[in-house]
Design a protein around this nucleic acid. Structure first.
Lengths: 136, 136
DNA sequence: TATTGTTATACTCTATAACTATA
DNA sequence: TATAGTTATAGAGTATAACAATA
């Protein structure tokens, strides 16, 4: 492996590390954990079933039961019967939950700040490179 | 915020998400957690005190006590008295620990695979862009 | 019979507070 | 008095297995 590859691997590690740390901090400043913040973000697009959330967050259903339980206890989400399937539950974000989510968004300035260091041309360059790197 | 910035923010999120998932999976395939893998990586450069590890891993000392305890119980690290400061302990990776660490390295192909999708010129471009993005 | 979700349980990660031993 | 590390404890994330209700 060449010098450039090695340097890139280190840069990627550093980027991911800093990104994760910034997200954790932002969630924490809003009084949430990272997992809770992710769940609220899923719900901000519309209501989900427990199973949808498990799929989206790539974890076991029993974990969702616990996460949603904690958020429900704090009034950030609701859990209602699904009219179409009586086994299922529709989880929705509340007004208070939306406020929390916006609070995180406001504090999580890391990506915008870093991207803002690049010129418009550099941003387009990076976008193309990342598209290649992340293509399925 | 423009179209390019928005797209870049999403790409960054996706990249970090995929990277984290790949690292977790690699650690798990080697029978370790991500935190344990990071600790072994710290030690692979040489022995550390408990306090060094807490600083390096940005967490509380009591957490290191527990992490090291679990790894020591599995024979992956040792914890010896420090000859210079009798309060301190020197933590070192064992041969078995090195084998585990190498196993993770072998399985964690994500960064190399993704970087390998770019030409040498593209790699140099990305390296410069990331240097700008990650500059202190 | 298969699926949705919950409960019980257990392990890990993590932090705070109180503590011991040493500097 | 300050520092290095440990212990006790607690909350959160996560998974597995067993289960109830419904499809």
């Amino acid at each position: 492996m060449g010098e450039t590859e090695r340097a890139l691997e280190q840069q990627l590690w550093d980027l991911v590390y800093a990104y994760d740390a910034a997200f954790d901090r932002a969630a924490q400043e809003a009084g949430l954990t990272a997992a809770q913040a992710c769940l609220l973000t899923c719900l901000s697009q519309g209501s989900c079933t427990m199973g949808d959330l498990a799929t989206e967050l790539v974890c076991d259903a029993s974990n969702i039961t616990q996460l949603v339980g904690r958020l429900e206890a704090r009034g950030l989400v609701t859990r209602d019967p699904d009219p179409d399937d009586r086994r299922a539950r529709r989880v929705s974000i509340t007004a208070a939950g939306r406020r929390q989510r916006r609070a995180i968004e406001r504090v999580f300035t890391f990506p915008a700040e870093r991207i803002g260091r690049l010129s418009a041309a550099e941003q387009r360059q990076l976008r193309e490179l990342l598209a290649k790197v992340m293509a399925v």
